[in-house]
Amino acid sequence: MFYSTAFHRISLMATKPHRLQQSTVAGTSALQSSVKRSRTITTESSMKDAFGKYAEYLNSLNEKRERVVKASRDITINSKKVIFQVHRIGKHNKEEVLEKAEKDLAAVTDQYMSRLVKELQGTDFWKLRRAYSPGVQEYVEAATFCKFCKTGTLLNLDEMNATLLPLSDPSFEPLQINVLDYLLGLADLTGELMRLAIGRIPEGELDFAEKICRFVRDIYRMLTLLVPDMDDSSDMKTKMDTMLQSVMKIENACFSAHVRGSEYIPLLGSSDQSSFLLGVPDIEP
């Protein structure tokens, strides 16, 4: 009887901790499950918020890209008008044509480049470079074309960027034309100079055509030294080939003009080099 009672007490003492342990484990599991559930809900909520903000950012960026593309297209169209105006230059209308071209270029800067600058200020504008690069290249081409025809010198990158600074809000990082877009625009400039030189030779402006030839040759030589050190740019490589063709066309046109000029025999007793009366002496009254 004594042993059975003692055994019963021992068994009760042994089972109570076991039950307590089971209840503790069950409570811990429930707590862990609750924490895990709340943590999962919090994680899902934060991810939804993050994806929502990212979607809003992408939508805003796409809308901005569309506006930038439109501004770039307007810059391209109106810069081409400036280039066409410069091509009207001749012996007797140089000042008039260049004055009109400079006014048109100033209008492009104030109306269209300013819109692009305002659209990109305060943003990582390098992300949208592909959207606005064509317009900037055309703008560089028009500005450098005007400068060369007026002064015979090259408009450098620092001078171009200085004209854009007044268009920017001082509290934001200003839009600056990068080196690659400037060089791509400069490569396109050589094609316009080639057309100008070949068009001036029949008008008797061989000296002007030779000046253009030397200028274009210097640009090509300079870019030949720079391009190998640049990052891989298929656009630049393609334009280098086109630039070499422009140099050769100007050189051939100037050389042909010299050869044709050397074939004429001046009129005896006359200083006229273009007379068709070759070798015929002057008639004395």
Rank of each mutant, 00 (worst) to 15 (best):
D158H: 10
L167Y: 01
R19K: 13
E96Y: 11
F84P: 07
K36P: 00
M248C: 09
P166V: 04
R221Q: 02
L157T: 00
V86D: 03
T42F: 11
R200A: 15
T144I: 01
L223Y: 05
T144Y: 00
L180W: 00
L116A: 00
A162L: 10
V227F: 12
Q21F: 13
A50E: 10
T42A: 15
A55G: 09
Y182G: 14
R221Y: 08
F7H: 01
R130K: 02
R129S: 12
S171K: 08
P202A: 08
V68T: 05
S34I: 00
N78M: 05
M113F: 05
I265P: 03
S271V: 01
L183D: 01
P170T: 04
D104T: 10
S60Q: 08
Q245V: 08
G261P: 00
L186Y: 06
S256T: 00
R37K: 14
L206G: 11
D231H: 05
A197W: 14
L268N: 13
F255G: 01
L155N: 03
D49E: 14
E96D: 14
S45D: 04
S271M: 09
L61V: 10
Y182E: 09
M248K: 09
K150I: 07
E210C: 13
R37I: 04
T109R: 14
K81Y: 11
V69F: 12
E159I: 04
V108E: 03
E119Y: 10
T153G: 15
T242R: 07
R221M: 04
T163M: 09
A101Q: 01
E141L: 05
H92A: 06
V69A: 14
L20Q: 09
T151C: 12
N252A: 15
K118G: 00
Q111D: 15
L31V: 11
E173K: 15
L193N: 00
I41C: 13
P228M: 02
K239R: 11
K48P: 04
S233T: 01
R195L: 12
Q85V: 07
Y139L: 08
K118W: 01
A142R: 04
L196E: 01
C149Y: 09
P281F: 11
M222Y: 07
D207G: 15
N156G: 15
Q273G: 11
D49H: 11
F276N: 14
L225D: 12
D218V: 06
R39T: 01
D49Q: 13
L157V: 06
V227N: 02
A106I: 09
R9Q: 04
A187D: 05
G279S: 05
I219Q: 03
E159T: 06
V247M: 12
C149S: 14
L128M: 15
E63P: 02
P281M: 07
K70F: 00
L20E: 11
Q121H: 08
A187P: 07
R73G: 05
S168A: 15
Y220W: 04
N59M: 09
T109C: 04
H258A: 10
D158G: 14
S168P: 14
D169C: 04
R129F: 06
D169V: 08
N78T: 04
S270H: 08
R67Y: 03
G52H: 10
E141P: 03
L58E: 11
F51S: 08
R65E: 11
S256G: 02
Y182Q: 10
M194N: 12
D188A: 04
H92M: 06
P17D: 03
V35K: 09
T5W: 11
R115F: 07
